[in-house]
């Protein structure tokens, strides 16, 4: 705070502007103007390029609401997001707990790094690596048949479970990371106090640990849910024909069907959904901060 007041004496936007302008101009040109343009385009009949005639229309949004396909796919994507998020909580939260409360010292540091390392590597490549595990005659298939006395066929490739597995693999480190940060901040004496006052392990978990780590859970859920709802590459690679989701339909509008205005409208609807979700999550996060 002393730092703030010391610098405030040389205050002023005028001195800050030359340093700020390049970065924020770039962000304006490459992020904020494009997002505005997308909204604008979503109300057009056609692209105003190369002399094509165009007019303003609500048709692209009418298409979303009149054809049940888009709504169905949006719901399918939301369900996918929900399922992946839940799996990430179920798998990631206990891991975060062990990291924060059981492991100590160097082994904790090393394992923490090992857990978050994969999510800095290329997501596309990691999704692709599952193809080799899940396909018929793949590693999972071969391994299970070598162990089990009877013959089974595991062909998960190009199925809904394959998409779930790939996405959970991609996003579970986020959950471990955010939950670890909040779990680590919980004072051990609170847990001991609860125990010594006669609470069972389960009661301590329910009444102390989970409530105190809620911000981490919510942050992790938001960080996972939002990109999964907009995912298209993962369902394409691992889902095959069953992998049609809202994101893949948007992709199609831009790279296959070339109906950009409709694609823009669909993107904007997704953006609205995403913003609503972030708005719902933000009070919990702010309470934590």
């Amino acid at each position: 705070m002393a730092a703030q007041s010391a610098t405030a004496s040389r205050s002023g936007l005028r001195s800050a502007l030359p340093l700020l302008a390049p970065a924020y101009l770039w962000l304006t040109v490459a992020i904020f103007l494009p997002l505005s343009a997308m909204v604008f385009f979503s109300f057009m009949t056609d692209l105003p390029l190369s002399g094509k005639s165009w007019a303003f229309t609500l048709g692209n949004y009418a298409a979303f609401f009149s054809q049940s396909l888009y709504l169905t796919l949006l719901l399918a994507s939301l369900r996918l997001g929900l399922e992946v998020t839940l799996w990430c909580i179920v798998i990631g939260y206990p891991a975060a707990y062990v990291l924060a409360k059981v492991l100590k010292g160097r082994s904790r540091e090393a394992i923490f790094l090992l857990v978050i390392l994969p999510f800095w590597s290329n997501g596309l490549v990691r999704i692709f690596s599952w193809a080799m595990v899940l396909r018929e005659g793949g590693i999972l298939d071969t391994a299970l048949n070598a162990v089990l006395p009877f013959k089974i066929n595991i062909d998960l490739m190009y199925s809904y479970p394959a998409v779930i597995i790939g996405l959970v693999h991609s996003y579970v480190p986020y959950m471990v990371l955010t939950c670890y940060l909040t779990l680590q901040a919980i004072d051990d004496s609170l847990i001991e106090a609860g125990r010594s006052l006669g609470a069972s392990r389960l009661q301590v978990l329910k009444r102390v640990i989970i409530p105190l780590s809620m911000p981490g859970l919510v942050a992790g859920a938001a960080l996972i849910f939002v990109p999964v709802v907009g995912s298209f590459m993962e369902p394409r690679i691992l889902g095959g024909r069953t992998g049609t989701f809202y994101g893949t339909v948007i992709e199609d509008q831009f790279v296959a069907v070339f109906n950009w205005p409709l694609g823009a409208a669909l993107s904007f609807i997704l953006l609205a959904v995403v913003l609503v979700i972030l708005a719902i999550a933000s009070p919990v996060l702010r309470r934590a901060a």
């Binding site: 992020i31 494009p34 997002l35 343009a37 997308m38 939002v226 990109p227 709802v229 907009g230 995912s231 298209f232 994101g247 948007i250 992709e251 831009f254 694609g263 823009a264 993107s267 997704l270 953006l271 995403v274 972030l278």
Partner: peptide, 10 residues
């Protein structure tokens, strides 16, 4: 925070 699908198409 905005999914890259939206940013990219925009």
């Amino acid at each position: 925070a905005i999914p890259w699908l939206i940013t990219g198409t925009a």
